[in-house]
Amino acid sequence: MSIYTATAAVPGAAARTGTRTTRVIGVLALVTTAFVVVSAFFLTPADSVQGDSVRIMYAHVPTAWVAYLAFITTAVASGFSLARRHRTLGFDRVAGASGEVGVLFMAMTLLTGSLWGRLTWGTFWQWDPRLTTTLFLFITYVGYLAVRRIDTDPRQRARRSAVIALLAVLEIPLVHFSVVLWRSLHQEASVLSPDGDVRLDDLMLFTLFAGVAAFTLIFAWLVIHRQRLTALADIRQTVGLDAAIALRRSETSGVVK
């Protein structure tokens, strides 16, 4: 049963956006996140140069990667939305939900990176290529969300925002390779480095990947719930409009009589 028929048939069920799948994802996200917290603070060693400040990495890097994943998801869903715009707005809702979560994670990346920078570089912020392109990416997607908030026909909204999403995703390679293309205060990648070497101790690397898994699960949970919530809001708007038209028609017919 689709969310539309469920809403129409059982009004009380309309408030629910969770299913067995989302509950499983939620539990897995909680367990993985708990492991990452314990491992990051108590199991992994301090770094030989940075000391305990390296523990910020277990939040900073995963949030950045998952923000990339979110923006790529937005672009893919936008592509499907453009290709099938006459059939459904479902892809558009997934694109919007993923964009919102991506902006949230990108903000966390900037925040944790700023704190980490203060502890290691000695400054919260500098206009170096990596930091600047990352901020540019963040602002672009804030703009994308702003376009989605323009009060217009949902299909027109979907079309406009899809075009922006397909262009904005091209910034991701620029951000990722900014430390290779230009000289940057930000260090080069430790895991996805150009030469393929991984420059982390084993437990550090394992905890980092656990962090990526945890944040990916949180991302999936949030996007599923958010796009269902958007669908419900669209239904409420449609039902409300239909009811208003019906009421107006009944009033008009009453006057005529």
Binding site: P45, A46, D47, S48, V49, Q50, G51, V54, M57, T120, W121, G122, T123, Q126, L185, Q187, E188, A189, S190, S193, R199, L200, D201, M204
Partner: peptide, 14 residues
């Protein structure tokens, strides 16, 4: 102004 440009290597304190 002085900024530290640390490397991309992370090793246990030893």
């Amino acid at each position: 102004r002085i900024e530290v440009k640390h490397s991309n290597e992370y090793e246990a304190e030893n």
